[in-house]
Design a protein around this nucleic acid. Structure first.
Lengths: 362, 362
DNA sequence: TTGTAAGCGTTATCAC
DNA sequence: GTGATAACGCTTACAA
């Protein structure tokens, strides 16, 4: 590895000087000096010098690294990909790196379990996605830590960033109303008095609110209490019953894609054409139609923005030391029919010319 | 932050001693010594000591960090989630951390572009997922680097780890044959002499091979050259034409989920019942039926295993300095109808008792 | 603007 | 088994 020392030797100056020049801490106002600085930079470039982050971290007392923690179980360690995207982008803008840590929640059953992430000191903060299927009891484990936490897709007064699902329910319902629908149903995942995640009851409440404001009658199907482990079984059966319950509705707002697709299956069994006979709108992180070719419109859950806000909050906590930041409900803004996938035409990319970057021959 | 120095002070020993004890480098064979060591550990525990990874890295000359690089463009920065899972798990077993770096491929059009990842020295290696939509010209950019690379889902002689799609095609076709089918079609994404990714031509070749070996006639639909940017458009139209071309086939093997769903749409338009009238089998990373409720069986692409092998290869490169490792084709092994989603019953998790881990009050 | 030197937290070496 | 001490690569007073 190329060190500052080597550059210093080649340039015939001291390490401190190289460091200062490379970090732009010299004015370089006189030509002779400017030339020398240029030479130093050139040598660094030629040698392929890259500052050693570990050394820098020690001085700064910061790692420049934030963890994205997903806390689920195998097969349930799901997180929305756009969220990762948002987090990554926002951290990058602050020259911060991102490390990903999957933690199987079962492991916490062993009370002595400490994840790798917390066994050593490596990160300045943690952005945590606690899978909705898990109990909140893991929360204090992380909240009690010395390293600051922000929580995505969770809803508590402090340090949480989540989609504003009540507003989302209103937003989606108003879209259907604006399209001229009067008989609009809502297809829930669980029973109407149950909720497997706050997003479910919030979207439903938003729907109810918007319907009431418009003087329309809510149309619902109450499937009673569905045990957690049954949630993803017999979905088509439930969709068939729901469709019957919805009667002459002309539009259905679905809690998620997992409701929309079985509903569409049920429709196609009965010869109901979409979207002509029934306008299905569903919440999902990416446009359902472009993923599945099924003609369903999608209310885009703003997970990317959630990620961005979370990363920004994290940066703020790190910069200021503040921990008591209020939570953020991120508004909904998009309804999409199709995602314009832009595949690049056959060859757009230039290969990077050799020597165009810091990395040099080994 | 708690340092070794503080522990040393409290314990009345030197820093070196604390380090040795905490790293288990003492035999601790005599009771007096064992007791002292225990006390040191206890103090560390109470103080919530965590070794500073940056300091450790400097000594070791290693970061204990590997990057997963996804090189695509917004909306195309896709990678299979199970792969991340596999990489994460295998790295964790080697006490190595994982950092994720998304790089928008367009940025390479600027020849001076250097991603954050390569501007500083932070990782011991890079596992790269180059989106199939991109040109291979980015390859030398990374391969020329000082930091070792492994490539996932790419196919070259060295340092690549990819699903063995030829064998996968054989595997899937034989499954259909074993189920008694004789008229088995293959539904390709592009024209038969085109291929947008090696997996497409390999699966097709595997299918052809297995059919031939069984003395069966391949049934294909050649859609001619589909321009890249048209690939994901008019998919249902193409599926309708394909279905017509397949004639009296009783089973169809699809290149991917994006083929299977439109095909199913086309079937349902014509009143063809699945799986009774037509047995659809498709390649995908996770079971299609549990994701979409559509009755299609899935040949699981072994991306998780690809991730595991990649991480292992990376570890080996780091350990041994070897760079000329031969590529690995990972075999197919699973066909699934449904994924058993195990949602935990309502409360399984114990909250971690305070003090059960290194982290202590701040 | 420069060189010198101290120091970040840890580990390894070497006498004791 | 222990305690000094040096070293890892870098930044930053401080004095020149």
């Amino acid at each position: 590895m190329v060190t500052i020392e080597e550059i210093a030797k080649q340039a015939g100056v001291s390490a401190g000087t190289v460091s200062r020049v490379l970090n732009g801490k010299n004015k370089e106002d006189r030509p002779a000096i400017a030339r020398r600085c240029a030479r130093i930079r050139e040598i660094a470039q030629t040698l392929g010098y890259r500052p050693n982050v570990a050394a820098r971290s020690m001085l700064r007392g910061r790692f420049g690294l934030v963890a994205f923690v997903t806390c689920g179980t195998i097969g349930l360690d799901w997180f929305p990909h756009p969220m990762l995207h948002g987090i990554h982008g926002a951290l990058e803008s602050a020259d911060t790196r991102l490390t990903v840590n999957e933690i199987a929640a079962e492991k916490f059953e062993d009370e002595h379990f400490v994840p790798l992430l917390l066994r050593e000191s490596t990160v300045d903060g943690m952005i945590i996605h606690l899978n909705p299927a898990f109990s909140d009891r893991i929360v204090p484990f992380f909240e009690g830590d010395r390293v600051p936490c922000a929580w995505v897709n969770a809803k508590r007064p402090l340090r949480c960033i989540y989609p504003d699902d009540f507003a989302g329910g209103v937003f989606a319902t108003r879209d259907l109303i604006a399209r001229g629908h009067k008989k609009i149903a809502f297809f829930n995942r669980t029973g109407l008095n149950e909720s497997w995640h706050f997003s479910e009851s919030d979207r439903l409440a938003g729907y109810r609110h918007a319907m009431e404001q418009a003087g329309l009658e809510p149309i619902l199907y109450d499937q009673g209490k569905v045990p957690r482990h049954e949630l993803f079984k017999q979905v088509v059966d439930r969709a068939r019953r729901a469709l019957t319950a919805f009667g002459d509705a002309t539009a259905v707002l679905c809690y998620e894609m997992e409701e929309a697709i079985p509903l569409w299956v049920a429709c196609s069994e009965r010869g109901i054409k979409l979207p002509a006979d029934l306008d299905i709108l569903a919440f999902h992180e990416t446009p359902i139609e472009s993923e599945t070719a099924i003609p369903v419109r999608t209310v885009i859950v703003p997970f990317k923005q959630v990620g961005i806000e979370a990363a920004n909050m994290m940066n703020q906590m790190i910069e200021t030391g503040q921990r008591e930041l209020p939570s953020i409900a991120v508004p909904y803004a998009e309804i999409e029919t199709d995602r314009p996938i832009t595949l690049l035409p056959d060859a757009v990319l230039q290969s990077a010319p050799a020597g165009s970057r810091a990395g040099a021959p080994s």
